[in-house]
Design a protein around this nucleic acid. Structure first.
Lengths: 188, 188
DNA sequence: TCCAGTTTTCTAGCATCGCTAGGATTGCTA
DNA sequence: TAGCAATCCTAGCGATGCTAGAAAACTGGA
């Protein structure tokens, strides 16, 4: 029976290698370069093996990568919690810029990860909690949850527009400071 | 020579039909459904004709659609100008929700439309101006341009996250009101 | 140790995609 | 009307995500 356990363990390990290879390739050449054939070559198996791990195909692999991303984001935000709104905002932006492809998988692609629902994965709720923790204390009369969502939207908008060359590059830090000023202060 | 003029005019008309068909199809079934073959069938010509109008292929067609979108957005924002920050914010969100595929073409896809540069198309600058007009009066000590960019990012983030089911649906209006409250007020 | 039976893996191929070369057709000019 | 030029279409290339069915490997019982 231990043989069987080892096989199961090896397969789980291979599943992780698939996601890792996808993330690595996406970060290096973008998600368009992540084809099932290249992924199969990277893990040194044939294409159909990918589908035994992820029946949903490429989308499912990207979703798995996105979930890893949410876990890592939650960790980063939690670590910056004691540095307040400014610290968390900075950590969020830094995360998105350090791993742009992963961030894309989390938000732009892989849209089948619904938030604010009962079946929302725990790691996604934890990432949200990382923002909520620093926003709630300064919510004032505003609903803390709603303010968190707006704060989050601002950070997300800054990142995506900045990446699409829609914002002036030289004002990057000034924008972030302004966000902190507008959201970090208690509003009555 | 009038024959020649008519031919040129017909070709320009056909170019417009291509973009119109692309927009219509994208809005109905998403940009993935906009294939060169289906576009060719819709305009009742063969595939290569598309490339004589748009040498850049499908991307160029999407970019052309995006530019139309910026022109329409600029118009919408200008019309809402006298209703202040709240009016412009509402108009912006309304535009994005009424034409989601077009909005995607403008911001998520077609990334080769750089902003904040010398060769930025005029319609894009006009859309930006529509936001700037209402934000600048309440900028206070903040740089008006930077505040406009942050305001814009917030709206954009709200729209994209909302569409990806990342925000709670029932708080939509509350979020927008909160944005107006945080950005519409003069900050010293 | 060998032999079914099951599980796992690969080869080969399908439909579709964006795009293009080269020939056929049309329209213009002299 | 003959020759030229512009226009358009047929056919096909390479690549994509994905899958059916054959081949291989492993399993557990005689």
């Amino acid at each position: 029976m231990t043989q069987r356990q080892r096989r199961v363990r090896d397969q789980a390990e291979r599943g992780r290698r698939i996601v890792a290879a996808a993330r690595e390739l996406a970060e290096a050449e973008g998600w368009d370069a992540v084809t099932t054939r290249r992924l199969a070559a990277l893990i040194e198996y044939s294409q159909p093996v990918l589908y035994s791990h992820f029946p949903g195909g490429k989308d499912a692999i990207m979703t798995a990568a996105a979930l890893e991303g949410f876990a890592e984001l939650a960790e980063v935000l939690a670590a910056a919690r004691d540095r307040g709104v400014a610290g968390v905002a900075g950590a969020y932006v830094e995360f998105a810029e350090a791993k742009p492809a992963l961030y894309d998988a989390m938000f732009t692609l892989a849209s089948e990860l619904p938030f604010a629902r009962d079946d929302t994965p725990e790691v996604m709720q934890e990432a949200y909690a990382g923002l909520f923790a620093v926003v709630a204390p300064v919510a004032g009369d505003d609903t803390a949850g709603t303010l968190t969502e707006v704060f989050w939207s601002t950070l997300h908008g800054l990142i995506t527009l900045d990446r699409g060359r829609r914002l002036s590059p030289e004002h990057r830090d000034e924008r972030l400071a302004l966000v902190v000023a507008r959201f970090g202060a208690r509003a009555g």
